[in-house]
Design a binder for these strands. Structure first.
Length: 129
DNA sequence: GTTCTAACA
DNA sequence: TGTTAGTA
């Protein structure tokens, strides 16, 4: 599932193609970059190169605009989105709580118990787990 | 021919 | 946001 993400983030589309795909003008696409909403990669000749993810984001911005949301509003939406993702990242880096450890240990015992029984062995204590 | 930046009769 | 000028 990671190979796919890499492809979607591969910047291979010139602005002309993006214009046709999104129905946005070059002026608008560049303006959104100025507003730091979609920052494309640049090739050797300083030409903007967009990825499929960039296309999706531009289409999303287009929808927000159609719904009457202004630049400031869209920026806020993405800022809040970034905050929530940062929280989830922090959550993942937190050390395990005692409760987490007990739950993991219990699941492990259940697995061991099942495998052991299939081999004809069993522990009396398994019944209490 | 396409894209870039900067600027506005 | 459109459009145009002068480049690369």
């Amino acid at each position: 599932m990671k190979e796919k993400e890499l492809r979607r983030s591969q910047a291979v589309l010139p602005i002309g193609t993006v214009m046709k795909l999104t129905n946005l003008s070059a002026r608008q696409i560049r303006y959104y970059e100025e507003q730091e909403l979609v920052i494309p990669a640049r090739n050797e000749g300083n030409r903007r190169m967009y990825s499929l993810n960039d296309i999706d984001k531009l289409l999303e911005i287009k929808d927000f605009l159609a719904d009457g949301i202004n630049m400031a509003g869209i920026k806020r939406i993405y800022e809040e989105q970034a905050e929530k993702q940062a929280e989830k990242q922090a959550e993942l880096s937190k050390p395990l709580t005692d409760e987490d450890v007990r739950r993991i240990l219990r699941d492990e015992f259940i697995n061991v118990s099942r495998l052991t029984k299939s081999n004809g062995y069993s522990f009396r204590t398994n019944r209490n787990l």
